[in-house]
Amino acid sequence: MPALFPESASTMASRVDALYFFLIAVAVFFSVLIAGLIVYFAVRYRRRTPEGVGVNIHGGLLLEIAWTVIPALIAAVIFVWGASVFFAMSRPPDETLNIYVVGKQWMWKFQHLDGQREINELHVPVGRAVKLIMTSEDVIHDVFVPAFRVKADVLPGRYTNIWFQATKPGRYHLFCAEYCGTRHSGMIGEVIVMEPSEYEAWLSGSRVEGSLASTGEKLFQDLACITCHRADTQGRGPVLQGLFGKTVQLQGGETVVADEAYIRESILRPAAKITAGYQPIMPTFQGLISEEQLLELVEYVKSLNTQQSPAK
């Protein structure tokens, strides 16, 4: 006897399962009702003489209204329930452990903030909300962890994210769920959920060259970003300390919240959104740096918030 239900190992799993059970109940009720009536009528009213004709029934307005309104009400309940689960899925808690994900044909690369890198394996602690910030180097992929009931496309040229909080240590399938070419079904991996203490041990046991932010800082110097973006206000570009999460005033009066996607775009297509009060002199880095280096730069810019308050 094969399993009929997947393992549930995240806080979201039981919520999705509850909805699933309700949906099954609705489906079974109506399928049995319709199938039962069809079979019953087919037997009860089978034609007995070759000339037999049926009896026309008129004036079923009340019935028509009933079987329009009742399904509509049930649909409304399912809609609200499905929507509330989805809201929970798309709103991560304030405090999350962030991990960066880069998909490429046909592998998953994970980067932890402290600098650990993994391929096709992702170690996370149990009981802590984890947010994956994801992008693709080539075509569309999709991160899917059935045991957590979460899934999101991983798009080139964009950051998408999902979050989950694992509830049970163990090893769980990670699938690429968006068709991405020849070895799509080989683009699989495992999420390894560990007790916090084991996780700490794993973190310190892995060889690292430095945290993501520190690698990003090195890049920031190597790519000469530092010549324009200085911690004092003397540079030709804006001060980046305190930028992340801030609302930026753009040329032309619009504003934008400086999230990961904005920082990414500022580096790849600086001309797309010009910060008010500055000249469009920043060179584009499109094609010059990889998605992973971009993530390091983004993480470095984010880390500037906590280092020191920006020089005003």
């Binding site: 919520r15 699933y20 399912i78 499905g82 509330s84 689960v85 989805f86 769920a177």
Partner: peptide, 16 residues
Amino acid sequence: GLFIAAVGFDVHVTDT
């Protein structure tokens, strides 16, 4: 179809 019209459910089963 009602199952997968519900967004929170569809996330788990879409592309499966």
